[in-house]
Design a protein around this nucleic acid. Structure first.
Length: 472
RNA sequence: GGCCCCAUCGUUUAAUGGUUAGGACACCGGGUUUUCAUCCCGGCAAUGGGAGUUCGAUUCUCCCUGGGGUCACCA
């Protein structure tokens, strides 16, 4: 699953890369073996592809499969273990990292104690005191171990691209585990090694990483790497202002896509949360976003995600699509396209919010209405008898209609007829519309005639007349 | 709780040391209309509080308050 917060971060990185004519690289960080999910990587790569983010380097989705592109691979961290071990070996040799043989039980115990004493939970550095001989002996015995960062004294400081100066005292920091007992690196080690190996110049990531940045800075320095610039983007929030989470709503990009939101609407929506190129506009193309994106314009404060605005955006984008484009987009969502699908799309597109709604509407048109409640055919101040009379006259009108099969032509001709006969407009049009659509709320009768054709329209009206007669 | 980050309408954003504090979503009116939707017109609504700097602060500084993040062999 690709979290929409992750999508936004990816988008920002993508904008920046494209704007500076750089490459967008996709690397998978799968160093937690216990969390590995079947198909998870494929989902992410595919979803990025669906929204139009195609990596120049790293993992891409091509012809129904994941392929790697670029010569700095592999681009999956679980295949780069040797690199991390080499780096950590160097740190140990330099005295910047050390072996730790403490059991989880012991760690839990000291943590509990510290919390009880209202102290900061931190590793107590017991294993730092081990002599080289002790370490060697423990390793010989095969005691499970991790390797920890030896946090030096001092201050950590960086000038965040979005937030400005940020500083931490190193006293606050725990001796972070760099290499786990299963031989896998933690995120902290892997990200530093890889970002350096892949020439990353700006790290764009969520605000939740601010407090681990000092550790990363230390690692850059210890490994002799030049540190990149950091830009911590604000969080996406639930309506209650907590970090946007699965528990409090739908946060999966693919689920919005599957619910019929257009990829570009999602891109536009998500990227303008916390960032806005101009004061007076809401809708931007991908090229405009790329051209106008600037990290300095990204807000510092978190943004509550307002999905009503996504609905609005999606409607905006649907309305400007051509009938053919819309038809093409909705096609995969319906079992069989009705014969008049393009006309239906033309008529209904201003009434729908998502492609899924359009698909449902499309299917509805092929089912003639049954009028279980014939009274909906009767207009407000009228009665059933009147409705029958009017519908019968509509049948006559339709039989004699030889004008163009265009909505405007049908409407003009019909209104002229109504005026000439001196009918009340609603008295005719309401029953006719409901007879054709079967619904209290629907497209106009002219649009229905245009879609169904005169013959099918007459059939529906006659069904309605029968239903009314039976009920009275 | 420690540390860190943040603070303009309900939400999202704009602006400036001097503005009637602007736009969008949502909401509420009105118009068009056979219904719904669209469309058009109009309306509601914000600088969290307190000091300081200044002729003047929403804007700069400090404090408070509030909210959030983080404190793992998860990312």
């Amino acid at each position: 699953m690709l979290h929409i917060g992750g999508l936004r971060t990816a988008l920002y990185a993508y904008f920046l890369a494209k704007q500076t004519k750089g490459d967008f690289l996709l690397r998978i960080e799968d160093t937690d073996q216990s969390r590995e999910m079947e198909g998870g990587i494929e989902h992410i790569v595919r979803t990025l592809d669906r929204v139009g983010i195609v990596a120049d380097e790293g993992l891409v989705w091509r012809d129904g499969a994941i392929v790697e592109r670029g010569d700095r691979g592999p681009y999956v961290q679980s295949k780069r273990l040797a690199l991390y071990r080499a780096a950590v070996g160097m740190l140990v040799a330099q005295g910047d990292a050390y072996y730790c043989f403490c059991s989880r039980e012991r760690l839990n115990t000291i943590r509990a104690e510290q919390q009880q004493n209202k102290q900061q939970p931190k590793y107590d550095r017991r294993c730092l005191k081990l002599s080289p001989a002790d370490v060697h002996a423990q390793l010989q015995k095969g005691v499970p171990h991790v390797i920890r960062l030896r946090v030096p004294k001092g201050e950590s400081y960086w000038n965040d691209v979005i937030r400005g100066p940020v500083s931490f005292s190193n006293d606050e920091m725990d001796d972070q585990v760099l290499l786990k007992s299963d031989g896998f690196p933690t995120y902290h080690l892997a990200v530093v090694v890889d970002d350096h190996a892949m020439n990353i110049t700006t790290v764009i990531r969520g605000e939740e990483w601010i407090s681990s940045t000092p550790k990363h800075l230390m690692l850059y320095a210890m490994l002799g790497y030049k540190a990149p610039a950091f830009a911590h983007v604000p969080l996406l929030l639930n309506p209650d202002k907590t970090k946007l989470s699965k528990r409090k709503g739908d946060v999966s990009t693919e689920s919005y896509l599957n619910r019929g939101y257009l990829p570009h609407a999602l891109v536009n929506f998500v990227s303008t949360l916390g960032f806005n190129p101009r004061a007076d506009r809401e809708l931007y193309t991908m090229d405009e976003l790329i051209a106008e994106f600037h990290l300095r314009k990204v807000k510092k404060s978190g943004a509550v995600v307002n999905f009503e605005k996504l609905d609005w955006m999606n409607r905006q984008y649907i309305q400007v699509m051509s009938d053919a484009e819309l038809l093409h987009a909705v096609e995969p969502l319906v079992e069989r396209l009705p014969e008049q699908a393009e006309r239906i799309v033309h008529v209904e597109k201003e009434r729908i919010t998502t492609l899924v709604e359009l698909a449902n509407t499309l299917e509805m048109y092929s089912e003639p209405p049954t009028f279980k409640n014939p009274h909906v055919l009767v207009w407000k101040n009228s009665d059933g008898h009147d409705a029958v009379v009017m519908l019968e006259r509509c049948v006559t009108f339709l039989k004699e209609y030889h004008g163009a099969m265009q909505v405007d032509a049908i409407e003009a001709s019909m209104k002229e007829w109504i005026a000439k006969e001196g009918y009340a407009t609603g008295n005719v049009l309401w029953p006719l519309r409901v007879a054709l659509s079967g619904q209290e709320k629907s497209a106009s009768p002219f649009e229905y005639i245009y879609i169904l054709g005169v013959h099918a329209a007459i059939e529906r009206v006659q069904t309605a007349i029968q239903a009314l007669k039976c009920s009275s």
